[in-house]
Amino acid sequence: MGIKSFQGSRKQQNVVAPSSLKVKDYMTTQLITFTPEQSVQEVVESLIKNKISGGPVVNDRQELVGIISEGDCLKQLSESRYYNMPLEHDNVEKRMVRDVETIDGEMNVFDAANKFLSSRRRRFPIVENGKLVGQISQKDILKAALQLKGENWNSTIKTSNSA
């Protein structure tokens, strides 16, 4: 005879609906941004000072025009040494990635997590009405997951996967 498990009646748990876990509620809105005219050297200094790995590039109307990362700066550093060109003579516009994939602020965090996994990106900007309004990172998604109570996690995931 096998072991039977019995659990008495339980109080109704507060289950968080996946649709309420939106990217816009977990995105960072106080962003360190760069401009196309800035020197790569300034970007490197800012990345180090602020302990970040990259950031959005915006024009004077706060419209997203690109992203610059540590990797973009490293590439410039390597080329400047090879061609004997000083770092301060290169600007963000020459080094930034222009084809920027964004995420919708209304997307739920579980779909955003899947987007991170499939794209292998570290961050996604959020744009509304053509303006940069925030950024979501892998760390922000992890923070959202930690804020869920353990007993809600399984219910939320099951509901999210069945939708």
Score class of each variant (00 low, 15 high):
Ile68Asp: 00
Asp90Cys: 13
Arg61Gly: 03
Asn108Gln: 07
Glu128Asn: 10
Gln135Leu: 15
Ala112Leu: 05
Leu74Ile: 11
Lys131His: 10
Ile68Cys: 03
Ser137Asn: 09
Phe34Ile: 01
Glu37His: 08
Ser19Trp: 07
Asn108His: 15
Phe34Glu: 00
Ser155Asn: 14
Lys11Ser: 15
Val15Gln: 10
Ser162Leu: 10
Ser118Arg: 13
Arg121Ile: 11
Phe110Met: 14
Asn91Phe: 02
Ser162Ile: 10
Glu37Tyr: 04
Val97Arg: 03
Gln13Gly: 09
Glu128Met: 08
Leu146Met: 11
Glu42Met: 07
Gly134Gln: 03
Phe110Lys: 02
Gln38Asp: 04
Glu70Ala: 00
Asp90Met: 09
Asn152Leu: 00
Gly8Ser: 13
Arg121Gly: 07
Gln147Ser: 11
Lys11Gly: 10
Glu101Arg: 08
Arg122Glu: 01
Val58Lys: 02
Ala113Gln: 14
Ser162Gln: 10
Glu63Val: 02
Thr156Asn: 06
Ser20Trp: 13
Leu31Cys: 07
Ser39Val: 02
Gln13Ile: 12
Lys143Asp: 12
Val58Asn: 11
Met96Trp: 02
Val133Tyr: 06
Arg95Thr: 00
Pro125Val: 09
Asn50Trp: 12
Pro18Phe: 14
Leu142Val: 12
Lys158Ser: 13
Gly71Thr: 09
Asp60Leu: 03
Glu93Leu: 05
Gln76Asp: 07
Thr102Lys: 12
Gly2Ala: 15
Ala163Glu: 14
Leu74His: 08
Glu93Trp: 03
Lys49Pro: 00
Ser46Asn: 05
Ile141Val: 12
Thr29Trp: 03
Pro36Trp: 04
Val92Arg: 00
Ala144Tyr: 08
Leu21Thr: 07
Glu88Phe: 09
Asn129Pro: 04
Ala17Thr: 13
Phe116Gly: 06
Asn84Cys: 04
Gln41Ser: 01
Ile141Cys: 09
Val16Ala: 08
Arg123Ser: 03
Pro36Asn: 01
Glu45Asp: 07
Gln13Ser: 15
Asn50Arg: 13
Met96Thr: 00
Gly134Val: 06
Thr29Leu: 08
Leu47Gln: 06
Glu70Ile: 01
Met85Gln: 14
Asn152Gly: 15
Val100Thr: 04
Asp25Arg: 10
Ser155Lys: 10
Gly71Ser: 15
Phe34Asn: 01
Gly71Met: 12
Asn84Tyr: 04
Val100Asp: 06
Glu37Gly: 05
Ser5Thr: 10
Ser137Tyr: 04
His89Asn: 15
Asp99Gly: 01
Gly66His: 05
Leu132Thr: 04
Met1Cys: 08
Asp111Tyr: 04
Thr35Phe: 08
Gln138Ala: 11
Phe124Ala: 04
Glu45His: 01
Val100Ile: 07
Ala112Phe: 05
Ala144Leu: 05
Thr35Ser: 15
Gly105Gln: 03
